[in-house]
Design a protein around this nucleic acid. Sequence first.
RNA 1: GGGUAGGUACCGAAGUGGCCAAACGGGGUGGACUGUAAAUCCACUGGCUUACGCCUUCAAUGGUUCGAAUCCAUUCCUGCCCA
Length: 390
Amino acid sequence: MSPEKQLELLKRGAAQIISEADLLEKLRQNRPLNIKLGVDPTAPDIHLGFTVALQKLRQFQDLGHTAILIIGDFTAMIGDPSGRSKTRPQLTHDQVMANARSFRDQAFKILDPKKTKTVFNGEWFELMTFEEVIKLNSRVTLQQMLQREDFAKRIANNEPVRLHEIQYPIIQGWDSVKVQADVEIGGTDQLFNILVGRDLQKEEGMPQQIVFLMPLLEGLDGVQKMSKSLGNYVGVSEAPETMFGKLMSISDTLMARYYLLLLGEEMPGGHPMEAKKQLAFRIVERYHSRECAQAALNDFNTRFSKKDLASADLPVISLDGLAPDIVSVVVAAYAQAFQITKSRGDARRLVEQGSVQWAGEKITDPKATPAFAKGGELKLDKTRAVRVAG
RNA sequence: GGGUAGGUACCGAAGUGGCCAAACGGGGUGGACUGUAAAUCCACUGGCUUACGCCUUCAAUGGUUCGAAUCCAUUCCUGCCCA
């Protein structure tokens, strides 16, 4: 494919490219470019937000370029305590490696393994001497670092910024030098870090990498960016029904964003709910299978559109050894079926407020001891219901 | 090192001896209405309890007091100013 055509394709969905002219120049060299994407294996799950960048990387692969997936095992072990006083738990090397493995498996749902080089940045950072670290630091000024928005903001808010945090851009930048990146992909929040990579490459007398920024995907709340810690994410390895359900709960405005960023197309007209089912279907299909997507859609229709719990496929709980009152059963249901710890107070509240239904009937008396017939359905809250073993 | 301001529940933030499990706002959850949408309205939001109430909490420890988030001492942590 001609360089111009490639650029045309790659530009689609990108938030910012620095610069297009330079990228075109590289594409014209007619060789596989090194496309870098850094990941931080602090959590083992990939969510849809990260797939935006991964999909772009895949596109580069399809055009014949080489994906370089950098696993930040070194940085993950240091632990980044950004975000006020909360110190992130420092991970052991074993945890990081386990996360990295699971990360790679998930990433390969999108990437082409044959055209992907995975590298760990511990490979070079663990070998650096303190002298080399100091030298590396001497190339960047404090003022440059402080220009970064989140540092500036934290300083303005009188929040601490620790010295090692301002090394992150340098660390990430040095990765670019080590892997000889031609292009680095990242979210728009990565602009600064990627630019540092350019600076360091220039100092090393290397060609500078292209900054390739993808928009940040908002999480399920529609406001903040999708992240694990905010709990507003959809993981690519979540169960089909969960994934489908989460996607169905998003707002219409957010749906338009998801169409654009995840499917790369405009939201179709017609009833918004149909469009949303389409979206949920296609995403489940992408990460599971067509059959799973169909099953999730059917399940959704049964449970929510037709409100027919009786024929829905629900997790099964056992009542053995439980007190017969509704509160105890609800607590046990959350624990057994969803691994959620509910206090008895919470469970009682759900009952009193009319959320809990047994066999289609609301039960609002916390002392109630309905006869739990085997095979019956117990609705817990908006999205969760269970079936009694039998 | 010196000075100074602080550390309250998921977050922000009031409270400065009893009326404090702790105002208010955000967030979250449930209900009504819906399309598991948005908007709106209502309720709930430390644990145990049907309830009376009991228990654990306001950085930590120790103390004063009939009684402490509030007063005192020590310690830990953070910001700001000076060096």
